[in-house]
Design a protein around this nucleic acid. Structure first.
Lengths: 100, 100
DNA sequence: TCAAAATGATACCAAACAGTATCATAAAGG
DNA sequence: CCTTTATGATACTGTTTGGTATCATTTTGA
């Protein structure tokens, strides 16, 4: 699953950047302190996690969000859909607060 | 963020188990091959990621899902809400397929 | 065609991680 | 009390990860 790709804050940051604009490796790297090679590794991991697409254009690679991959990760949480209704933890806490 | 806690498949598995039933450490460990100590480490990481709550009961610890933490992680994806509308990648692909 | 630009690839390192093994506590039950 | 049960804590190990440094490859433009 793409969850491993989401574990690193730099990679989550990259995804948010790519939501606003498709960027080459160099462009992405400009937004970080680390070397371009390190950024490229992150992009590779994001690609392996199906969270971004990489399109070759001449000598550069244009990175863009992979909608399907993101949605697929999000859909993991669907498993808990039934849970939200059954266990209203937050509500219970609020009620207990009121009773004090 | 709790994303790191979600990176490991064992931990995602544990969360799904806890969605059905609150369990002690030993109970959770019964569902895996690894040692109880290893499972407990995973539970600790899940707790640090605010994805589960641990309630002491006598000499045992009852682990349960932390609704708030889960929702918080899910809400990270809200950042991309606007993206789904603007970039209909999947739709575009389908149209291109039809035109062939 | 040659140098710069963009990336690929690889070796390397320190830190983090998953897991085991082992011993120490704490609480229940008899 | 004493033993069992459930957990805490720690040391140790192999692997992965995030990052750098370095060199190779490909494309572009003068």
């Amino acid at each position: 699953m793409g969850f491993r790709a989401l574990a690193d804050p730099t990679r989550r940051n990259i995804l948010q950047m790519l939501a606003n604009k498709n960027m080459t490796i160099a462009e992405v790297a400009d937004n970080f302190q680390m070397t371009r090679a390190a950024v490229k590794k992150h992009l590779t991991i994001l690609h392996e996690g199906n969270l971004i697409s990489i399109q070759a254009e001449g000598r550069s690679r244009l990175n863009s969000l992979n909608t399907d991959g993101l949605k697929q990760v999000m859909s993991w949480f669907d498993y808990f859909d039934g849970f939200w209704d059954e266990h209203l933890d937050t509500l219970k806490i609020e009620i207990e607060k009121d009773m004090q």
